[in-house]
Simulated scan of single mutants.
Amino acid sequence: MEPYLLQDEELKELVVKIPGWEINDGQIQKEFKFSNFIEAFSFMTKIALICEKYNHHPAWENVYSKVIIRLSTHDLGGLTNLDQTLALEINKVFDQ
């Protein structure tokens, strides 16, 4: 997948296309909550494998049962179709 910067109209539609994510400081972000650390870490492991598939890696943090994921494409200086795709994939894993 060749990444390209999302244009203004695409950015407006982004939060509708990827529920629960919000645009903040040139990146998209979502907080995920789990019952415990093991569930949170298991989720992160699944996401890590997807990130490797796209060779696109998030900024994320984990504190006990909470995972915060932030996505942007630093190489292109903003939000891209790759960030959108990865966010959609992350939502699918979380919803399973």
Rank of each mutant, 00 (worst) to 15 (best):
P3E: 01
R70K: 15
G77W: 08
E9C: 07
P19G: 11
N62K: 00
E13D: 14
I90C: 12
L86F: 05
Q7H: 11
N91P: 03
F41M: 13
P58M: 14
I50Q: 08
L76F: 02
F37M: 10
I28V: 14
V16P: 00
G20Q: 06
K33E: 15
A40P: 01
I18A: 10
I69A: 14
E13F: 05
M44T: 10
Q84A: 12
F34A: 04
G78P: 08
D25R: 15
V93E: 14
G77Q: 09
T45D: 00
V63R: 12
L76Y: 03
F37H: 14
K30E: 15
V63Q: 10
D8Q: 10
I38P: 00
Q84N: 04
H56M: 13
E22D: 12
A48Y: 02
S42L: 03
T80I: 06
L11G: 03
A48I: 00
E61Y: 07
S65K: 15
C51K: 08
E10W: 02
L11W: 02
E2W: 09
E61N: 13
E61V: 06
L49W: 04
K92N: 14
V15W: 13
E39F: 04
E2K: 15
S42G: 10
L71E: 10
I47H: 00
E89W: 07
F94G: 01
P19M: 05
T80P: 09
N36W: 02
L82N: 09
N62M: 01
I18L: 10
F37D: 06
H56L: 11
Q96L: 12
A59Y: 11
G26W: 09
I50H: 06
V16W: 11
N24C: 09
W60F: 08
H56F: 12
L11N: 05
E9I: 12
H57C: 14
L14Y: 07
V15S: 13
I47A: 02
G20A: 05
N55M: 07
F94N: 02
D95M: 12
P19C: 04
I50N: 03
Q27T: 10
A59W: 11
Q27I: 04
E22I: 14
F43K: 06
